[in-house]
Design a protein around this nucleic acid. Structure first.
Lengths: 212, 212, 212, 212
DNA sequence: GATGAATGAGCTTTCATTCAT
DNA sequence: GATGAATGAAAGCTCATTCAT
């Protein structure tokens, strides 16, 4: 059994009392990291470069992050949390579980289109962190996957989705499909058009594939 | 547009004339690399460790491979080529394009089950190589994807698959789905059972999803 | 035309603000380097050994010097600058240009006698640096040569030295003569006596050779 | 006391019996080495490159030379021996010791002009060999210096050169002067004109300097 | 004698991280 | 909290040399 515990979280994320000021610094570092990682790649990015970009001293970064991997992983969690929040809001607007899935698929690929730097980091750099791939307990990622799982279960309850569909597997299959398309888009710099067509194709295929 | 050219291939891969003897040495290094990479991970694997495992000198490795990344990428190409050959043979036995897809899906996941070390390297370590993700021209990978694309086109020609399915997108979606399942299997050490169930679920969903 | 530019100078030579403290560290490294280079030779000297001798960490050396060659070249420039300063002071005491030359010749060889480690480095190790021989723009060395050239011109102006003497050539010839004697002294460990006799011989020969 | 013994000489210089064929190979390697050393510098020249240039296998070089330094030193000895032979012949033509010195000086610098590759190797690369500078017993070089020493003694015997001139020191001083001029010519690519003027200047100065 | 595949010692430099101020 | 000078561990790769053929 894989250990997968990431000891980096839970440290003194916010050093001082002045939440406003420090949050700014924490966020400044994360935003700088996205830019630098996207430009140079994770391994070739230097802590000193992120520090310069964020206009803080090298050492200051270690007041907010445990180490270099922790920046990457914090970035992942922070952004994914925002994404999940937004997605929940979007989905709540729809009644039909099948429409919810459609919304999910489209929004996932739209986000890739609208945040190219972040997408480059999440699709390519993040996976190059050994810590992320092997030690990190992907709680937030599981939340994300479960958005799909829940919709499927909802659809099954309403008789719109086949009972023999296994939500735990299909949620991963759908995520994998979207992820591969996103990766291809990032690596080949195919943008809007490609992502929109792909969203349509995947919607059509998945919804037919699981519909009752 | 990303350049993505990998200059490492085509060098003096086989120093001597005695194809038999040298092929053995080349292969010995690759097999050792799979073991070591799977055990320690790409970045933590030492060239000297691969050399020891293969019973050659450190320098000998550089007669057959340009550098550490080249070992990983050669490994990928070599193994993928074998897999493609085997898959083609399997698929050729079936007449029905839909049955061919079923075969493809099942074989992909069976290979993961039967070659856990190789799977671990291809699913996790390979993606951690910056060279592979950013500079490599994935000719063999495209061949692999095209196996799917061809079957889909075949099915469309026979009227078994909807005409509005885009093979170029669906092939990636299917690969992404299989890849994510494989990754999950590798990271959580879920084996045979999980992979078989997943194969069934994915077959059912995809085939329904694209059937005419 | 040979480029001969040495890009190593002008970097962040002094990291901090406390000039006193850092100057000490910079100098400590140079003094240690002279000892180690003289003992082991440039190529066989290890950075780690210089660091240990100077009681700093390996990496600290790279805060003050670009690389190993830069230590050697900085050493050359630093010491040559001191030597030039001292020589100027010595020469200023004499009125007669011929006496100035005598002083120059004697002081050059006395310095070899009084600083055997430094002499060993400058005579033997420095020339073994490819960077020094081929890329370095020898500004300080030209200053040194020009000390001789200026005295000769002065002597010509006063009618003490023949007008047909070419200062630009003779300055090199004299330097070459002194340099070869110094090298022989260093390689065979011939000291005081040899250097003093040589100084007298060279004085006699050169002064007669160029006198009006 | 410096050891200065070079153990590389005396090995099986000429492997076989066929003196013609093997002498050709030995010489081919030396000539190739001059070209390669002049082009790339000693340290950056690869044995394999010299072998390719000489159209022999890497290993063959080790039948004729003990190691890389031995190529350089053999090259030095071979060429210096030729030079000494030629110089002796030239000098023998003159009766007057002072004319002999003149001839010596001019010929030395003419050789630099006529053999730029060889000069580049002897002036720059040779001195970068630690073996040459520190372990080699420079028998041939001493022969060369003694050519000067002998002429001076001859001149003293004939009453043409001052008795208080020390041949052992002046020979080095003269060599040093010529050497520095030669080095400057090589490094700055100053050719014929510069060398000829320098020869004249040095002749004038040295002959006046030591004349009775 | 000739070959060239195989060997394996050898080492600078980078950069994430720390900690005294 | 913020700084940034100082630390020191860490390893890929080259290439002179060897030696079995």
């Amino acid at each position: 059994m894989n250990e997968r515990s990431f000891s980096g979280r839970g440290g003194a994320r916010v050093p001082g009392k002045n939440a406003k000021a420090t949050k700014t610094k924490y966020e400044a570092i994360l935003e700088s990291a996205i830019k630098v990682f996207a430009r140079k790649g994770f391994h070739k990015s230097r802590i000193s470069e992120i520090a310069r970009e964020a206009a803080v001293a090298d050492g200051t970064i270690y007041l907010y992050f445990k180490n270099k991997d922790d920046i990457l992983i914090s970035l992942f969690e922070d952004k994914l949390e925002q994404i999940i929040r937004n997605l929940r809001a979007e989905i709540r607007q729809e009644q039909d579980p099948l429409e919810k899935l459609r919304k999910f698929i489209r929004t996932h690929l739209e986000l890739v289109n609208r945040n190219p730097d972040l997408a480059a980091v999440l699709q390519v750099e993040l996976r190059q962190s050994n810590k992320f791939m092997k030690e990190y307990v992907p709680a937030k990622f599981i939340d994300y996957l479960n958005l799909i799982g829940e919709i499927i279960r909802e659809g099954q309850a309403e008789g719109l989705i086949r009972r023999d569909v296994a939500p735990g597997i299909v949620k991963r299959a759908l995520f994998g499909a979207l992820d591969e398309i996103a990766l291809h888009s990032v690596l080949t710099h195919k943008g809007k058009e490609y992502l929109r067509t792909s969203a349509d194709q995947i919607c059509e295929m998945f919804l037919r594939g699981i519909a009752a």
